[in-house]
Design a protein around this nucleic acid. Sequence first.
RNA 1: GCGCGCUUAGCUCAGCUGGUUAGAGCGUCUCGUUUACACCGAGAAGGUCCGGGGUUCGAGUCCUCGAGCGCGCACCA
Length: 734
Amino acid sequence: MPDNSSSYNPNETEEKIYRLWEESGFFNPDNLPERHQKPFTIIMPPPNANGSLHLGHALTTATEDIMIRYKRMRGFKTLWLPGADHAGFETQVVFEKKLEKEGSSRFEILKQEGGREKLYKMIWDFTQTNKSHMEDQIKKLGASCDWSREKFTLDPNIIKTVYQTFKKMYDDGLIYRASRIVNWCPKHQTALSDLEINWEERNDKIYYVKYFLADNPKEFIIVATTRPETIPGDFAIAVHPQNKQYKNFIGKSVTNPLIKNRGKYGDAIKVISDSAVDKDFGTGALKITPAHDSVDFEIGKNHSLPLDYQIIGWDGRMNELTGELNGLKILEARTKSIEILEKAGALEKIEDYKHQVSVCYKCKNTIEPLPRTQWFVKMTEAPKSGKLSLRDLATEAVKSGKVKFVSKKFEKIFNHWMKNIRDWNISRQIVWGIPIPIWYCAKCGQDILFIENGRPDRCPKCNNNSFKKESDVFDTWFSSGQWPFATLQACRPDDFKRFYPTSIMETGWDILFFWVARMIMFGLYVTGKIPFEHVYLHGLIRDKDRQKMSKSKNNAIDPLGVIDLYGTDALRLALIIGNAPGNDPIISEEKIRGYRNFANKIWNASKFVMMNLEDFAPLSKPTLTDGDKKILKELGKFIKEVTKDMENFRFYAAGEKIYHYFWHTFADKIIESVKPRLKSADKNERLASQYLLLEILKTNLKLLHPFMPFITEEIYQKLPIKEKKLLMIEEWPI
RNA sequence: GCGCGCUUAGCUCAGCUGGUUAGAGCGUCUCGUUUACACCGAGAAGGUCCGGGGUUCGAGUCCUCGAGCGCGCACCA
């Protein structure tokens, strides 16, 4: 070693080493030497281009880089394809927060002339800046990915693929447009998929409301409801067919206790019977407000009730159909409606009630179920061209073992979710995303799928030539679900053929349904092949108190901060060791510091070896003692164990074994035992011990390289070995 | 309601198909200025493997019941 400092300084070496790797060109599989033939591919989960990287990204990067570096050393043609995600809704939410801080809002900008385009451009610029920061951060983490193949989810050729898929599905009958009750977030003013809502337990009230018979106001039926403000939208009271108490009411009409004169819709609320009603819940009678509840919508459909009588606006306020409630926010309207009911003598009682309420997963505001015409994907019906539905394609692939989950528990969770899956709403009422390529005939309303530039010529139905473009964009997961084949098809001509199906999809378990499940469905549906052979799901990083790390909780460890303090290698090891796949790891600064100490140990032990190697120039292999042979034999055994762990995705175990061997066997025992021999007068004795030290050090650097790429490469480059390559492409020592 | 998982040393976790005195890191304690390293070395203490029952020659590991904790899915007003 050139310097005599007693501690390793990662900051000096990491940048230099990364440049060395990049310049070698070996991140690109096309440049790898002859021995690298069999492909090994990982498509990097593209980080959202709306912020900076957190420890979760560092974990993703470390895990995937370990796999890639290991396989590269084992002679595979390794492709690790990086990317960035425009992350539709998420990015728009982040950007809107930024606008709010600046005293503006999305709605402010959309009001302006050309506002939509202007907002899109602002978010575009925002993501491009973030994207380039993120690339630098991924490099700092040591990722040996092929930057020449990097993709962005809004690249034109990615969008092209997404449109082709949409067309295929449309023609295949998997895409339909329908009015349904959707999960509407009044703050963000967009519909959300079932996955984008959370359920929160709330302590609310349940109100028992009397509905009086129209022709006999002395008699009434009592309904328990948590949402009295929706009464103006009631069109029926449903009771179970076997309900005894209200049997005689069926077929009769009751009056709306909150509002009169609904115009053409009439004021009648009919008492109907429907088996969807739970006869043991509440009073056994359910008020039916078709436009504001999905159960009611279904019952309403079956009984031919008006489905579109919407009394709450997109902004979450009561509209003009609600009389005195008009203009009020939901909760205000609830209070007001109770006052009115009370005055009218229609309120029986109020009880405390604990229940689950759906909220927007981003802003936590209560989701408003509202009817809206949206584009959906059929999940459980087979396409015209095939036998299996998207759901069945995916579950079959998993069941048959074509797609393997590294952690079996996720396979169970996957199957359970698939069993209950419903059609997927892919329409989003936001600007940031890929536009849904549909035009509507201005005359007859026919929807026309058109994926070229420009617009359709003529309406195929009525021959009219003026159109209105669909303003909704795709759910971002509709495009990212196609990521493995979309990226490879958008690279070099042969890439798809060479690298698809990919080897492993490695990502956090929190996006198992959002992303992994969809990729399996899309992959099989579009290409006929699985998108990846293995699914490796890592856990979500927690702090010491088991809290999920987040900026808002102020408990997040900034990866760049700890890299500056302790080095990337130390961070990577801290993220990997003690972290079995699927468990949520707890990361503390102390842990990272511990592995910084290890890096220092490696540095000093290596320094010691090299200090004693200055006169090492054996003409032939020195004669080894029995003790030496035993040590080398054990080393061989150790290599086998580590390799087995690597093959079985037990990186936490492999890392720990190497740590332990290097420190407590090599440094503490072997080096110590060899010290006197290094000073021996017997030349062979000296050569033998030098040989031993160099062999073990070399081997350890190789085994450690996937985990701690920087320090191992730095030391390897200093070793007095002839024909030396980059450690990155050396052979794994087995 | 349906489903999944966890419970092993003070803390964070390993323990793969059941097999010798149950492991690691951090922390704690004692000793040590031996020139690779104090971001160190030598050594030590510390566990009824959540509880009951069962299968077995043998169980932390398999089965079963229970307790506690966590999580996912779900249109009970």
